[in-house]
Nucleic acid binder design. Structure first.
Lengths: 235, 235
DNA sequence: CCAGTTTTGCTACTTAAGTAGCATTCTAAA
DNA sequence: TTTAGAATGCTACTTAAGTAGCAAAACTGG
């Protein structure tokens, strides 16, 4: 990346805000940007070639990207993580953890930095302190995965759906909108089921007065009832 | 720990073998042992007090410990990880990741080192390089959790059971024994179901000639058939 | 504005998983 | 050696989840 460009400032300021790079010196961060190339991933960009993320490490600057697994046996998708600003991927290939069979799709127009894995490893060798922040970051993600396992293994689908809606409620707006822009297929992939089942339970919730729906948009009309769906079944 | 003791040598040699501490200098490892106390956890020892692991970091020297979650709604256990030699816990509390609602149980007579979290953090500050090996370690565990999610969310129980048996087959012995010493309740906790369902599928497998059972012991009699249960459904 | 695609809503059906309960067998502690 | 508890095997039943398929509605790109 030509760090003389105006754009460079934007990336620099995003990274320095990130918990991953906040402690990195000005010089080192510049070095990181020098081995980076910026790329735009328009909405719906898919990375289905696992070798790409195997050799290129990414920092998500803006946008939203889902990490998902595809099961060919029953033609089902499972979203493992939603990546947002300042997330990085793929930490598995960075640590040489064999092949990591996941795919990526930009759910919104996104901007990413591309860094060759080999160069990233070198940079980390020169900046050993980042291992600490990467460790903290990874542990946080692991915590999310752990709760995901517990949800999928022990809770029924209405509970999982309710929790998904609850956790993604936009409490700032007057009307509690949730998970904007995702279809029922996407919702199913997020909780490990199919669109038909998601739709069934959404209709049930609607009848119970918990929410209202319009296309790709869910509005929670009764937060208390939604909470009750989750509570009494562990928080 | 009084590092003059004969026992000390045993702990030292175990740690230096571990990928987590192998690069640590002799002096630093001694310092680590000085802030450690050794403890025996006989088989069936349970740690149900989450505040214990919140303030004490552990290194498992020998034995086997399961990390599990308990769901009070439906009275079910879910085993998240099996810890073995040179595993450490709990990395969540070490990284200050809030409370981590999991319990521990020694499945075999185990020997652990106890290290106060605050002292461990200090020691890590003095030995910043360990962050790198802890990162690699954590990423490995995260990989296991990720596959766990995929299994539980997308595969049926016969497949999950078959995979569990397959992954735990003792290929060294002439007779392929698998998961020795665990009851059907434990097997259920490992794949996210109940003992009744585990038993049902074990009986099916038995009829299909895949395995033979005796109390707390399963012997695989036809590995190929077992593999077929898993394959064709992603590896 | 039209044509084609995506998304949603819904019905009917199949199947797997979960639940309850009990009898038998095995094991370990008194 | 006895006995209480644990583990297993099994039956019958209930319920939730998955599947298939179709039609209406709502977008989107040309």
């Amino acid at each position: 990346m030509n760090i003389g460009l105006e754009k460079y400032r934007h990336y620099y300021e995003t990274l320095i805000e990130s918990e991953l790079f906040s402690h990195v010196t000005h010089n080192s961060l510049n070095q990181l940007l020098e081995i980076s190339t910026a790329q735009k991933w328009p909405k719906k960009t898919c990375i289905l070639d696992t070798s790409h993320t195997q050799y290129t490490f990414h920092v998500l600057i803006t946008g939203k990207i889902k990490v998902y697994h595809f099961d060919s046996t029953n033609d089902r998708l499972l979203t493992l993580l939603l990546l947002q600003d300042n997330d990085v991927f793929d930490i598995f290939s960075l640590m040489g953890c064999g092949t990591h069979k996941v795919y990526y799709e930009a759910l919104e127009n996104s901007e990413v930095l591309n860094i060759p894995v080999a160069k990233m490893k070198e940079w980390m060798k020169d900046n050993p302190l980042v291992h600490k922040s990467f460790l903290a970051y990874t542990v946080q993600k692991m915590n999310i995965l752990e709760r995901y396992i517990i949800n999928v293994a022990l809770e029924d689908i209405p509970t999982r759906l309710a929790r998904l809606l609850y956790n993604n409620m936009d409490k700032s707006s007057a009307h509690y909108q949730s998970i904007s822009g995702l279809s029922h297929v996407e919702l199913g992939a997020l909780i490990g089921t199919t669109r038909a089942v998601v739709n069934r339970h959404i209709q049930n919730f609607k009848e119970e007065g918990i929410l209202e729906v319009s296309r790709k948009q869910i509005t929670i009309t009764n937060v208390k009832l939604l909470e009750e769906k989750i509570l009494g079944k562990n928080v």
